[in-house]
Nucleic acid binder design. Structure first.
Lengths: 222, 222
DNA sequence: CCTACCGATCGGTAGG
DNA sequence: CCTACCGATCGGTAGG
């Protein structure tokens, strides 16, 4: 346990939290050690006592986020066990990860832009198990005729990652690109709902009409 | 004309080009005026003779990109006139815009992350006409039963922008997240193809089997 | 965890 | 378009 007796997290954790926030908002070079220290309520040299350099702080921030991701993966894979709403369950758990801390998507996206050669393999490693499950699920669905036969599983997964990452990282900016009349919360809802719908509709075949009490389809539509 | 007699662009244009490149690669704070000046082959004070401040240089870079976008829009809208492959034509022209200069997507994405409140309305203004056409096209398609009735046109457009922007900005990093066996060019192709497929498959209904010889289409909808 | 301080680099200016 | 220079801020260190 790294939390102190009173409710407040200990200093290293508070540094990590504020660094996450400021790196996500202003980027690695745009957020100075002074800014981060001030947000924590200490001086810069004190910060450097806990993290030997700015770059070590960056790596620690990233590592903490990937640890959180690793904790979320079992939940996601459990959601992917069986049942007709597997996809919704995986989607809900994945969205939850980015919703739990709104800094995660922009932080990851910035790292991908700033240091692709360093981050890509790191992400690949952690996303691999998740992606493999989803790809297998897709291929099985294709054999069973539930999934579009022309889906390229790996490329589909990559594009959905793009969609989710960018969707969360810029939804604060892009929701106003839509017509203004909607409230902020409503605009976010519309964007999230459409994000999931796009991911689903591009994956599944339009269900060959075999729900419980339906006749052999053909004319059913609307 | 701003180009000199010999093939080389004039100095301000060369500054804009290098600034675009370095802002896209390292971000606004991460690319110094010294770096940009050196890439052009002049000294920093000379650069500041052409652009009064770093921020003015940033605005000029952005303005040039939006100007290029404005030049692409008529081509895109012309492609959207009529014919069954409207969507492919719009897609091809839009992809061409980002392909013509690989710095455009990351530059725009970085600006959206760094200065959402400044960039969002600016993008909204320039994307509005394009988005309106696409939204009208979607709604017409919905009335005609060619497009999924549960597509939220504005949200769909926003998500496709996300997909394209992030897809181009990070495709260099994420294509290796896929299985490695493919060559770089092939991986890019797979990602681009899947990007278009996702955008299309989530939009159109699975063509109600009434190809060339079209009749009034009364039976297609219950 | 602090004060005091370091060289390097930042954006920008003076002056020609 | 240049050389020479400015104050401010950067990441990081000494020393307690």
């Amino acid at each position: 346990m790294t939390a102190e007796r009173n409710g407040r997290p200990d200093v290293p954790q508070r540094i990590l939290d504020q660094a996450t926030r400021l790196f996500a908002r202003h980027g690695f070079v745009g957020a100075s050690l002074r800014d981060i220290a001030r947000a924590v309520g200490i001086r810069k040299p004190s910060l450097l006592y806990h993290f030997a350099s700015k770059d070590e702080l960056r790596r620690s921030v990233l590592e903490q986020m990937l640890t959180h991701w690793n904790e979320a993966v079992p939940r996601i894979l459990r959601a992917a066990t069986s049942g007709p709403e597997q996809f919704d369950a995986i989607g809900a758990e994945t969205l939850r990860f980015f919703n739990d801390d709104p800094d995660r998507a922009p932080l990851l996206l910035r790292e991908l832009l700033d240091r692709p050669e360093e981050i890509a393999p790191l992400v690949a490693l952690r996303v691999q198990p998740w992606a493999k499950i989803v790809c297998d699920y897709i291929r099985k669905g294709q054999e069973q005729g539930r999934v579009h036969p022309d889906v390229d599983p790996e490329a589909y997964v990559a594009q959905v990652i793009n969609l989710v990452l960018c969707g969360f990282a810029t939804h604060a900016s892009l929701r106003n690109v839509l017509t203004a009349p909607t409230s902020d919360g409503e605009a976010t809802d519309r964007l999230l709902r459409e994000m999931l719908r796009v991911a689903k509709a591009s994956l599944f075949l339009p269900v060959p009409a075999e729900p419980p009490t339906r006749r052999p389809a053909a004319s059913a539509r609307a």
